[in-house]
Deep mutational scan, measured.
Amino acid sequence: NKASVVANQLIPINTALTLIMMKAEVVTPMGIPAEEIPKLVGMQVNRAVPLGTTLMPDMVKNYE
């Protein structure tokens, strides 16, 4: 099973992601793959992301 990106803390709306906000975890359903973490740094979330939430592509602005 591949790990996904999971919020390590509450991430407020429009916050630019940093490494300490994210962790890799095997979850179902899968979200953004953990190997994308370096690419996510500096990208903004378009909603508040609660602690423990799996990051999905539609939660990150301009994620492709």
Score class of each variant (00 low, 15 high):
Tyr63Gln: 03
Leu10Ser: 06
Gln44Ala: 05
Arg47Ser: 05
Glu25Ala: 08
Gly52Cys: 10
Thr15Ile: 05
Ala48Glu: 03
Val45Met: 12
Gly52Lys: 07
Ser4Tyr: 12
Met30Gly: 04
Val27Pro: 03
Ile13Cys: 14
Val26Lys: 04
Pro38His: 13
Glu36Phe: 08
Val26Glu: 15
Pro57Tyr: 14
Pro50Leu: 11
Val5Trp: 01
Ala16Leu: 07
Ala24Gln: 07
Gly52His: 10
Leu55Thr: 00
Pro50Val: 05
Ala34Arg: 05
Thr54Asp: 00
Leu40Lys: 00
Asp58Trp: 14
Ser4Val: 03
Tyr63Glu: 02
Ala7His: 01
Ile37Asn: 02
Pro38Asn: 07
Ala7Val: 09
Thr28Cys: 15
Thr54Arg: 13
Pro33Cys: 15
Gly52Phe: 07
Leu19Ile: 03
Met21Cys: 04
Lys61Phe: 10
Pro29Asn: 11
Thr54Ile: 04
Met22Pro: 00
Ala34Glu: 05
Val41Gln: 13
Gln9His: 09
Thr28Val: 07
Asn46Val: 11
Asn8Val: 08
Thr18Tyr: 06
Gly42Pro: 01
Thr54Val: 08
Glu36Arg: 14
Thr54Ala: 07
Ala7Glu: 01
Val41Met: 12
Gly31His: 02
Ala3Pro: 10
Pro12Gln: 11
Ile13Glu: 12
Leu51Trp: 15
Ala16Asp: 02
Asp58Cys: 15
Val26Ile: 04
Asn46Trp: 15
Leu55Ala: 01
Ala34Met: 10
Lys2Met: 15
Thr53Asn: 08
Arg47Pro: 02
Val6Phe: 08
Leu19Val: 03
Thr54Tyr: 03
Val60Pro: 01
Glu36Lys: 11
Ser4Phe: 08
Asp58Gln: 10
Thr53Cys: 09
Gly42Trp: 13
Leu55Val: 08
Gly52Asn: 13
Gly42Asn: 08
Gly42Asp: 04
Ile13His: 05
Thr18Gln: 03
Leu10Phe: 09
Ala16Pro: 11
Thr18Trp: 05
Val27Ile: 04
Leu55Tyr: 01
Glu25Asn: 13
Pro12Ser: 08
Pro50Ala: 07
Leu55Asp: 00
Ser4Gln: 03
Leu51Asp: 09
Pro50Trp: 15
Gly31Ser: 04
Val26Thr: 03
Val49Glu: 01
Met22Ile: 08
Asn1Asp: 15
Asn8Trp: 15
Val5Met: 02
Thr15Ala: 05
Met59Ser: 10
Glu36Cys: 13
Gly52Ile: 01
Met22Thr: 03
Val6Asp: 00
Ile37Pro: 00
Thr18Cys: 08
Ala16Gly: 02
Glu25Tyr: 12
Leu19Thr: 03
Met59Gln: 07
Lys39His: 08
Lys23Ser: 06
Met30Tyr: 13
Lys39Trp: 08
Ile32Trp: 02
Asn62Cys: 15
Lys39Phe: 09
Thr54Leu: 05
Ile20His: 10
Met43Glu: 02
Val6Gly: 02
Ile20Leu: 13
Thr18His: 04
Pro29Ala: 05
Ile20Gln: 14
Thr53Ser: 14
Asp58Thr: 10
Met59Thr: 08
Lys2His: 15
Thr53Pro: 01
Val27Cys: 09
Gly42Gln: 13
Ile11Gly: 00
Leu55Gly: 00
Lys23Ala: 04
Ala24Met: 11
Lys39Tyr: 06
Asn8Leu: 14
Lys23Glu: 02
Leu10Ala: 11
Leu51Gly: 11
Val60Asp: 01
Lys23Ile: 04
Ala7Pro: 01
Ala7Gln: 00
Gln44Ser: 12
Ala48Leu: 13
Lys61Asp: 09
Pro38Gly: 10
Leu51Tyr: 13
Ala3Met: 09
Lys39Pro: 09
Lys23Cys: 06
Thr15Arg: 12
Lys39Arg: 11
Leu10Pro: 10
Leu55Phe: 13
Leu51Val: 12
Asp58Glu: 09
Lys2Thr: 15
Val27Thr: 08
Thr53Leu: 15
Ile32Asp: 00
Asn62Ser: 14
Val45Gly: 01
Thr28Ile: 05
Met30Ala: 04
Glu64Ser: 15
Val45Pro: 03
Gln9Ile: 11
Met21Asn: 04
Leu55Gln: 01
Met56Val: 08
Pro12His: 08
Val27Asp: 03
Pro12Lys: 06
Pro57Ile: 13
Glu35Tyr: 07
Met21Ile: 05
Gly42Ile: 01
Leu17Gln: 00
Val45Lys: 00
Val49Ile: 13
Pro38Lys: 12
Met22Trp: 01
Ala16Lys: 05
Ala34Leu: 03
Pro33Met: 06
Tyr63Gly: 03
Met59Glu: 12
Ile32Leu: 09
